[in-house]
Design a protein around this nucleic acid. Sequence first.
DNA 1: ATGAAAGCGCTAACAA
DNA 2: TTGTTAGCGCTTTCAT
Lengths: 340, 340
Amino acid sequence: MAATMKDIARKTGLGLATISSYFNGGNVREKNRIKIEAAIEELHYEVNEVARGLKTNATKTIGVVIPELNNTFCAEIITGMEDVLRSHGYATIVCDCRTDKKLECEAVEFLIRKRVDGIINMPVDEEGNHLRKFQKTGKPIVLIDRKIQGISCDSVLVDNRKAAEDAVQCFIKKGHRNIGIIGGPEGIFTAQERLAGYSKALNEAGIPIRDSLIFHGDYTIQGGVRGLEKLVRDNPDMTAVFVTNYEMTMGAMIGVNELGIQIPQQLSLIGFDNLQFARACNPKLTIVSQPTDGIAREVARIMLEHLENGKQEGKESFSEKLRTEIIEGKSVSFLNGKLP
Amino acid sequence: MAATMKDIARKTGLGLATISSYFNGGNVREKNRIKIEAAIEELHYEVNEVARGLKTNATKTIGVVIPELNNTFCAEIITGMEDVLRSHGYATIVCDCRTDKKLECEAVEFLIRKRVDGIINMPVDEEGNHLRKFQKTGKPIVLIDRKIQGISCDSVLVDNRKAAEDAVQCFIKKGHRNIGIIGGPEGIFTAQERLAGYSKALNEAGIPIRDSLIFHGDYTIQGGVRGLEKLVRDNPDMTAVFVTNYEMTMGAMIGVNELGIQIPQQLSLIGFDNLQFARACNPKLTIVSQPTDGIAREVARIMLEHLENGKQEGKESFSEKLRTEIIEGKSVSFLNGKLP
DNA sequence: ATGAAAGCGCTAACAA
DNA sequence: TTGTTAGCGCTTTCAT
């Protein structure tokens, strides 16, 4: 059995309260401090956070619910968050819900039972039903990548509409008009926004939108492969394609290679996320880059703020929108005014 | 405040023990069961696992300490483990120690305070000092990717020596003799094993080992870039290079592109892990593939076995070695007997 | 500055 | 089957 504060009390001849006070930054006579420290050393004492959590009603643990840990964007966000949270004494329990609403809901219930002090969530269920129960605890929720109607909580977003708009404009400026898009799942907010940005850019350039140029993918590698194959097959006149997340970008490159398509001579391409992958491609890919680390730190910061300031009754739920950036590679060709 | 069992007892007029019995699969009269369930519903009761943990001395939580979450291999392993552990009611607390021994040690202490029921670790500190304290609790430890002298616990390994040997033999069979390697950090077990496999294959083929063909990388993308650049610069006669993890493989591809090297005409290359990345390269990369999901499930299985069977006094610490596989692409050229 | 004692929400041993 | 009760290890009054 692990040593307890009682053991230390016994060994030092002091009272329980003194020991507790020692651990919580109270004033302890120098002489006793030394005795306590010796006892800790001797007994290999480590605070029992479970007992402390029961007493203080705070577990110093944050639950994180994400659609897919096996997605670079999610993994990077978690790395960043975990870093700052842990440096403030908070643990994180990560639940990967496999893009499944039911699992997402179970994950939240699981975290409620674990009495986490807050939940960070990149939501799958757009209605936020999974969060209702946790909301009632009054503990903070911070959302990544989308807001949810009726759940009042802060969120950190990326300007996905603008991101897509920029990418498509980049094609248009170089003379492309038949531009395809490999989009995300229709129910997902980021996917809707990215598609909206695509449409907006085309509209503003007076280019009609063609259904056959729009592929609704699923943000997976395999989805990217299928999307590229289908777009190429259905649109012989397509000269450019915009891929809307990292996994599908990798998939599109697989498709390109397996079909033997030359980039950018036969097809121009703009991908998403992961600058390193873009550099590893030949030619180097032009991509839309999200400020992943910025998102992570911002989310963690907001969570810590809530945790430390307690309930901010009056405060509006607040949402921050970060900007993306286009990193130019050599995967977009210049079409000199003539249609192919 | 959240509802407690006491609230349910009051509401139903039953005793505490009956409610507890209900939650722990005991026998409760049908009539009472219905009353209890109604009360749970009404009060939105959720078991407090913190209190339960204090009482039962088991938190149903496993700590996972890894060098880098931002490493695909680690991320995939965690995904797989978390999946099986959670389906058995266990949470996982993941600690990313950034390949830093000090942080690794702190992570373990943190997990001890959290009173996790077991620790899964892909160790950075080869001497295992960070695990000594936890070992004393008598709770199970399962190691990934290396054994540690003096820490008796199970481990799941990959036959890294054989993996490297296979890769190098693949080069040799096609006529290569000047074969470089971008290895991992010298202190890391997997890196030592992979380097040993490289040497073994060369020795058996009667090819002398040249220091200039060996680069000690750090398992990062940037390390891969530097490794490729240095090997190419220092060895004009090098015809093939073996890269020993995924991140460095990506880095090597970046180097290859930025130097404008043609693969496999000017240089043959075998990478590591991540079949999808290999397919996304042009030409498709030949790689050594680890059974990531197999490792994850095996680790989780062993942990669960310990957790459920309790202490297996007599049992030897046991280590399992899984095999890798070479997936052929088109990145290795055939050198017809002549040296370049 | 220190000690005594109550109690956080649960389980388990015992009694009824 | 159900109720009563002690106690897990800690924090936190309230005295001293």
